[in-house]
Design a protein around this nucleic acid. Structure first.
Lengths: 210, 210
DNA sequence: GTCTATAGGATGATAGAC
DNA sequence: GTCTATCATCCTATAGAC
C-alpha cells in the first residue's frame, strides 16, 4: 500500500518512452517531419534533447518508431471495426468514418505517413504491408457476410475489399476537407447500392442488353 | 528571321519564372516544404537565391505560387476529362486514373498539397474551393448523361459527384501505393455497378422484390 | 533583375558531469 | 539515463555591386 505511492515514479522507462512518443506525435503531426525540431519535441515531452538521443539514436529513428506505432494502432482499429459487419444495414461504417475524420491528430499523422511513404521506400513497404492486412481483414469479413446472404458479386472478395477501402478512404478525405459535403449515412447507402448493382451485373437479377 | 535567333533569349521574365516554378515543383515534391531549401531550388533552376527573393518575396510565397498553379492545372484536367462522359461505357475514367497515378511528381505534389492544406487554413480554403469546382463539373456532366439515359439515381447529382470523386481519389491512392491491387478497368466497372444499384434502390428500373 | 557575400539564427547531434 | 553546454552546419533572408 505504501509502496503504491512510489509506483507512478518507478518504471520510468516505458513511461518516458510513451510520453516521448506522445509528444513526437503532436509535434510531427503539426509541423511535419522536416519542420519539427528535436528541441521542441523534447520540450513538449518535458525531457531534454540528450534524453531523446540516448533512447532513440536519431530524429529519423524517433519518427519511424512513431509511424510504426501509428500503423499498428490503425490495424487494430480495422480489426475491431470489421467485427460489426458490413452488409447488415447497421450504420457503424459511417460512425467509424466520421470518428476517424474528427480527430485532427489522426488526420495529420495519416497525411504525414502518406507523404513520407511516397518518398521513403522502407516506409512505403510498411504501408503496403499494412494496407494488405487491412484488405485481407475486410475481405474475410465480407466473405462471411456474403455466405449468409448468398449473393454473387461478380468479383473476388479481395477486389471488393479494395473498392470498399478506396471508397472509405476517399470519403474520409472528403469529410476531413469539408464535413458538410458528406451526409452522415452516405457510406453505408453507397455500399448497399454497390452490392446490389454488382449482383445485378452478374445477370442474376437484371436485364442488360435485352 | 534573323531576329528569331534572339527570341528564346528575350522575354526572360516569364521564362525565368517558369523555370523557377518547375524547379520548385521538383524540389518541394521530393523534399516537402520544410525539407526543401531555397538554395537547392535556386540551383535546380540555374539561378541564384537573390533572384528568387527578388521575384517572390519569400519561400512561403514561392510555395503558394506553386500550389496555386498546381491546383489550377488540376481543375483544367478535370474539365477536360469530364468532356468524354461517364456512363458511356468508355474506359477513359480508368485511363485518367492510371495516368494520374503514374506521375511521381503529381503524386508527391498532391500529397504535399494535402498535408499543407490540413495545416494551413488559407491553403485549406483554396483546396475546398477547388474541390467544389471539380464536384460541380462532375455533377453537371453526370446530370447531362442522366438526362440521356433517363435513370433515377435516388440522390442529388452533387451527392453522386461526391461519391464518384471519393471513389476516384480512393482508388488513386490505392494505385499509387500498389498498382497491382487495382485492375485496369476497376473504376469503370464499379461506377456502372454503382449507378445500377442506386437506380435499383429507387425501384425505378431494376426488379427488386417482384 | 541577377549575381556574390554574408548576416543572424535555428538545427541535429555530441560530450561530459551527475 | 538524464541533464546542460556546445559544436558544426545549414537555413532564410538581405545588402550591395554590376
Amino acid at each position: 500500500m505504501a509502496q503504491d505511492r512510489h509506483r507512478p515514479l518507478r518504471n520510468g522507462a516505458a513511461r518516458t518512452r510513451a510520453r516521448l512518443l506522445e509528444a513526437a506525435a503532436e509535434v510531427f503531426a503539426e509541423q511535419g517531419y522536416a519542420g519539427a525540431s528535436v528541441d521542441e519535441i523534447a520540450g513538449a515531452a518535458g525531457v531534454s534533447v540528450g534524453s531523446i538521443y540516448s533512447r532513440f539514436g536519431s530524429k529519423q529513428e524517433l519518427f519511424e518508431a512513431l509511424m510504426s506505432e501509428h500503423l499498428a494502432r490503425d490495424v487494430a482499429r480495422v480489426r475491431d471495426g470489421m467485427a460489426v459487419g458490413l452488409a447488415e444495414g447497421v450504420s457503424t461504417p459511417d460512425d467509424i468514418l466520421h470518428e476517424a475524420a474528427g480527430s485532427r491528430r489522426r488526420t495529420l499523422l495519416d497525411a504525414e505517413t502518406w507523404v513520407s511513404a511516397m518518398r521513403t521506400p522502407a516506409l512505403r513497404r510498411a504501408l503496403v504491408e499494412y494496407e494488405a492486412a487491412a484488405r485481407h481483414e475486410t475481405s474475410r469479413t465480407f466473405a462471411e457476410q456474403r455466405g449468409h446472404i448468398g449473393v454473387d458479386i461478380g468479383m473476388s472478395d479481395e477486389e471488393f475489399a479494395t473498392v470498399v477501402m478506396a471508397l472509405y478512404q476517399g470519403l474520409l478525405r472528403q469529410v476531413r476537407l469539408d464535413p458538410d459535403v458528406v451526409a452522415p449515412d452516405l457510406l453505408s447507402r453507397v455500399l448497399m447500392a454497390l452490392v446490389r448493382g454488382l449482383a445485378a451485373d452478374t445477370g442474376d437479377a437484371a436485364p442488360r442488353d435485352r
